Simulated assay, not measured.
Amino acid sequence: MDLAVIWFIAISVLWIGYFVLEGFDFGVGILMPFLGKRDSVDRRVALNAIGPVWDANEVWLLTAGGAMFAAFPAWYASLFSGFYVPLFLILLALIVRGVAFEYRGKRDDAQWRLWWDRAIFLGSALPALLWGVAFANIVQGVAMDADHIVTASLLDLLNPYALLGGLTTLSLFTLHGAVFLTLKTDGPVRVRARQAALRTAYVAVPAGAAFLLWTQLAHGKAWTWPLVLIAAAALVGGAAAALKGREGRSFTLMVVTIVAAATTLFGSLFPDVLPSTTDPAFSLTVANASSADYTLTVMTWVAVVFLPLVLLYQGWSYWVFRKRVTGATVTGETVTAGPDTGVAA
């Protein structure tokens, strides 16, 4: 297999890992205003549920972006110039959210925490929406000239297919976060999260089904049909499991949904990396957008050595903080590590 193809697959895996792990972080941030009254212990419980892992989850984004830059510089250049406004808004939202996590608990003041709670909500909702818009446009293609310069305007990116993609990721990540909270917390937050999961499913299931069907019919390939069916079945099954209180099964099925749906997108895109709607001959492909073989070879050896270490460390951190978070763990003398406290337990 060509090294460029291998790295396309590797980058796809990095993005899928990011959506699975950061997806529930976004969902928790979106749901936080609805999980308890302002300045309540319940909001601290929700934040502490993702406190030990949210920054490690964002590393998947940095790695995916870095791998794109090194393996497919032409793809990276066209994408980040043509999608400058939405990607800048995503970056700004992630910065604001990270600052909010760290500064929310720095002052014992209800108004102070309220403003940071709003920042966490916006910093979670905006990327959850815009990632769907961006990747829908990548799969669908954009206006691009022979020099691989994207000529599409911001309004061109806000087309019906892309907006449906944004609604899908927004609702899917919100559902993912709600299911995660039912698995990771106990007490009032767990009860409210289950209610939020059921309500969000009324949007996520039809939106996800419509987006996957549109993607398959317009851009999919014969071999991606099973992935579409798996994603749809897992999404419905995950919502049904949440209704029955089977939290572990529900979370597993949500992971399967995101993996299958994202794989459908990347599978529909291949062998292009950024199709041109101006002229198919202007499209960026795995072949014409990749770096030299020497660069890809060096990257491969680096990944072989360091990727297992990163996976082992992140798996260990999830194991260490595997216990449920409750009100007692954030109000007692010993607190769960998290962005609300800024300290380790």
Rank of each mutant, 00 (worst) to 15 (best):
M1G: 14
L3N: 05
A4I: 01
F8L: 07
F8R: 05
A10W: 14
G17D: 02
G17H: 09
V20P: 01
L21N: 12
E22K: 12
G23N: 08
D25C: 10
V41G: 06
D42Y: 07
L47N: 14
N48Y: 07
A49P: 10
G51A: 04
V53C: 08
L61F: 13
T63A: 15
T63N: 09
A67P: 08
Y76P: 03
S78W: 00
F83Y: 05
L87H: 03
F88E: 09
L89H: 00
V99Q: 07
V99C: 11
K106A: 04
W112F: 06
R113L: 01
L114E: 13
L130C: 00
N137E: 02
P160Q: 02
Y161I: 07
L170R: 05
S171I: 06
S171L: 11
V179M: 04
K184G: 05
T185C: 06
V189D: 04
T200N: 14
Y202N: 12
A204G: 13
F211D: 07
F211E: 07
W214H: 14
W223R: 01
A234I: 01
V236D: 04
G237C: 08
A239I: 01
A240R: 12
A241F: 06
L243F: 15
K244F: 11
L253C: 13
V255K: 09
T257W: 11
A260V: 03
T264P: 05
T264A: 10
F266K: 02
G267F: 03
L269N: 00
L269C: 04
T278K: 08
A287E: 15
N288D: 14
A289E: 01
Y294M: 13
V304W: 12
W316R: 15
R322D: 11
R324M: 09
T331K: 12
G332S: 14
V335S: 15
A345C: 13
